[in-house]
């Protein structure tokens, strides 16, 4: 939004002192919208893994950029929160930076890149490497909330399938993976069964992150803006990745250490570095990598960490 238009709006209503970006309500959304989302969130927590329909609003960003996550964040943020936003694990990509700025301006919340310091973390497609705590809320951006959607396109049918706990089709899909590839080839958005009842799409996180959903001390909230669904996993809740006895679920990652920090336990991105086949593997979680380098760990291609070097 241009500065000129902002001033014009400000002049119109005089503004209230508690608002940061004075033309807007706290956390952008109007109160009735937030109440509607908040009611959906409470029902989502009461029925773990079940997709609660909600009246998703137009947001000042396109669908696919996290409108669901942004609406959930707007409904849960308080002025005391410290927010972190990641996109595929990175704090410094366009999507993460713009959503962080959005809430800095409309909710006046403090922000951070450090996972342990954040109280609300909005994420696109990753769960941070650092263990989450009781005092944190993890908000996922979800593109397609229905795990059965690519198997059954009709909402009326998938809704019935959830009601009847009819998840055979999903197992057939995983079986076909094995028949075709010799193993379960689904690598992200790997379906989980929450508390033994609802099969849920954990959003397109790598299956490496699936085990972190179960028994997580933090509250996990999922928002799908275009598809108008909210769902949740309460703390300390069972979330089992679907598998077969002879083909058990396996949380996989690239079999390398991080080239910058040397971590062997983190999820890695592959980066092409030249046109002759050169590549490096680096932590997808930028904060985890930074914290490790700060603590003195250096990978094969990493330079020693310099704290003041950025300036």
């Amino acid at each position: 939004m241009s500065a000129g238009r902002r001033q014009e709006r400000q002049a119109g209503d005089g503004g209230e002192p508690s608002m940061t970006e004075q033309a807007y309500n706290f956390a952008y959304l109007d109160e009735q919208t937030k109440r509607m989302i908040r009611r959906a969130l409470l029902k989502a927590l009461a029925i773990p893994g079940y997709q609660v329909p909600f009246a998703s609003r137009e947001m000042p960003m396109p669908y696919g950029w996290g409108t669901g996550g942004v609406q959930v964040s707007a409904a849960v943020l308080t002025p005391e929160d410290r927010m972190k936003v990641i996109d595929q694990g990175a704090d410094d990509t366009t999507n993460a930076v713009s959503i962080r700025k959005f809430f800095e301006r409309t909710a006046g919340v403090a922000t951070t890149e450090r996972t342990p310091e954040a109280t609300v973390i909005q994420t696109r497609h990753r769960i941070p490497e650092a263990p989450l705590t009781e005092n944190q809320i993890l908000v996922y951006q979800v593109p397609i909330p229905e795990p059965l959607r690519f198997l059954e396109p009709r909402e009326t049918e998938t809704r019935k399938m959830h009601a009847l706990e009819e998840y055979g089709l999903m197992h057939v899909k995983l079986y076909e993976d094995i028949a075709r590839h010799g193993h379960i080839a689904t690598a992200y958005a790997y379906p989980v069964k929450v508390e033994g009842r609802y099969v849920m799409d954990p959003s397109p996180i790598p299956k490496f992150d699936n085990p972190k959903i179960a028994g997580c001390p933090a509250i996990q909230l999922y928002g799908a803006g275009r598809e108008q669904r909210i769902y949740a996993v309460p703390p300390w809740t069972a979330a089992e990745s679907l598998d077969f006895e002879d083909h058990p679920f396996e949380a996989s990652k690239a079999d390398h250490p991080c080239a910058l920090c040397g971590a062997e336990d983190s999820y890695l991105d592959e980066v092409i570095i030249d046109d002759t086949g050169g590549r490096m593997f680096v932590c997808s979680d930028t904060d985890y990598c930074r914290a490790r380098r700060e603590a003195g760990h250096t990978g094969a291609m990493g330079a020693p960490y310099e704290t003041e070097a950025q300036a």
Binding site: S18, A27, E31, L77, T78, P79
Partner: peptide, 11 residues
Amino acid sequence: DAPVDAARAFR
């Protein structure tokens, strides 16, 4: 202050 009071209450 409805927006802020409601946000804290909802949390």
